[in-house]
Amino acid sequence: MLKAEIREISIINNDNQKTLLRDIYFTVDYNSIYTILGENGSGKSTLIKSLTMLTDKKVFRIDGNIFWNNQNLIHTSDEALTLIRKNQIRYVFQDCVNSFDPLKRMNYYFGKMAEDEKHLNELLEYFNLPDKNELGKLYPYELSGGMAQRVAIVLAAVAKPKLLILDEPTSAADTAIINLLIFFLRDYVSKENNSVLIVTQDLLFAKKVSDKTAEIKNSTLTEFQAFRMLE
């Protein structure tokens, strides 16, 4: 499904180049939840953005290969990447409120990203959110951090992507919502060859939800393995 062979991710500042991550090699298989653990500033978000070339090409340099169903995303056109992100790989970023345009009501996103209205309403209800009509009247800044995070998860999942990528998905969630998310993700990867990739600092969540985990340490990624509490 997804295979990363990244020799180096570096940041370019004027004529200087600094290595952020190196020797990142892993494969995300079907019907599994993979979790990458790491401290703040370890490069987790940079890594997942690099997987579909979401990093700014003027600032970041990726040396290696990233294959999605045998297609090398590093050498894929921007137009094709946009379609892949829309239909096959969906993201939920940590700062969900600011990932939305503050000038657009949520109805804009429902219309643009959720073609299956029945499935959308089912997901909103599952995650204890108001229905589409009520929620759609609100601007992003009128949502709490937890609501924005759940809405972002719903908008990503409603497209039924083959790979769902979540950045710190429990950062604004209470215990009840975390448990709902765990059950949802376990069910999600049991169907239609779907997979999930998570980056987080939440060890307890990782233990409950993951099939395999790895850790970013010293600017590189350990090998993915069946979950164990990493020291």
Score class of each variant (00 low, 15 high):
Phe110Met: 02
Ile48Val: 10
Leu47Asp: 03
Tyr91Arg: 05
Thr220Ile: 09
Met53Ser: 14
Leu51Glu: 04
Leu230Thr: 05
Cys96Lys: 08
Leu181Thr: 13
Thr200Phe: 02
Ala80Cys: 12
Ala172Ile: 04
Leu166Arg: 04
Lys118Glu: 10
Gln201Lys: 10
Asn14Gly: 10
Thr213Trp: 05
Lys207Trp: 08
Glu122Asn: 15
Glu142Val: 05
Lys58Asp: 14
Phe205Ser: 02
Leu81Gly: 11
Arg90Asp: 03
Ala176Glu: 11
Ile153Pro: 08
Leu197Cys: 00
Phe93Trp: 02
Asn194His: 12
Ser77Ala: 05
Leu123Cys: 04
Leu143Cys: 06
Tyr91Ser: 02
Gly111His: 12
Lys118Thr: 15
Leu163Ala: 04
Phe60Cys: 08
Asp202Tyr: 02
Thr213Lys: 15
Leu166Pro: 09
Ile216Tyr: 04
Asp29Ser: 10
Ile24Pro: 06
Ala173Gly: 00
Thr213Leu: 07
Gln201Ser: 09
Phe110Asp: 00
Leu20Tyr: 01
Ile74Leu: 14
Ala114Arg: 01
Val196Leu: 05
Asn218His: 14
Ile178Pro: 04
Ile12Phe: 05
Thr175Ser: 14
Leu221Ile: 11
Leu47Trp: 07
Phe110His: 05
Gln17Asn: 12
Arg105Lys: 15
Val199Gly: 03
Ser42Ala: 10
Gly136Thr: 11
Glu79Arg: 11
Lys212Ala: 07
Asn72Trp: 09
Val92Cys: 04
Met1Glu: 04
Leu221Phe: 08
Met106Arg: 06
Asn218Tyr: 10
Ile177Gly: 03
Phe93Cys: 12
Ser195Leu: 03
His75Glu: 14
Leu103Met: 13
Asn128Ala: 15
Glu122Met: 09
Thr52Trp: 06
Phe227Met: 02
Ile74Pro: 03
Glu115Cys: 01
Ala152Asn: 08
Leu120Ile: 04
Met53Ala: 06
Leu203Gln: 14
Glu134Ser: 13
Thr52Val: 10
Ile153Cys: 01
Pro140Thr: 12
Met53Tyr: 09
Leu164Thr: 00
Glu142Asn: 14
Met147Thr: 14
Ala206Asn: 07
Ile36Lys: 02
Ile74Gly: 00
Thr222Leu: 15
Lys217Tyr: 15
Leu197Trp: 05
Ile178Phe: 06
Ile153Thr: 11
Gly145Met: 13
Ala156Ile: 00
Ile33Phe: 03
Asn14Gln: 12
Asp29Asn: 14
Ala80Thr: 13
Ile165Leu: 03
Arg22Val: 02
Lys160Val: 10
Asp29Leu: 00
Ile84Leu: 14
Pro169Ser: 02
Arg150Tyr: 04
Leu47Ser: 11
Gly111Leu: 09
Leu129Val: 10
Thr19Ala: 06
Leu164Ile: 06
Glu125Gly: 10
Arg150Gln: 00
Thr170Val: 08
Ile48Gly: 01
Gly64Pro: 09
Asp101Phe: 12
Leu181Met: 09
Ile9His: 00
Thr170Phe: 07
Arg105Glu: 14
Gln225Tyr: 01
Lys191Tyr: 07
Phe100Pro: 10
Ala159Val: 12
Thr35Lys: 01
Val28Met: 04
Thr55Phe: 01
Asn218Trp: 07
Asn65Met: 04
Thr19Arg: 03
Asp101Ala: 08
Asn40Asp: 01
Leu163Tyr: 06
Phe127His: 03
His119Trp: 13
Ser195Asn: 01
Leu51Tyr: 12
Glu134Thr: 14
Arg85Val: 01
Asp131Leu: 13
Val59Ala: 03
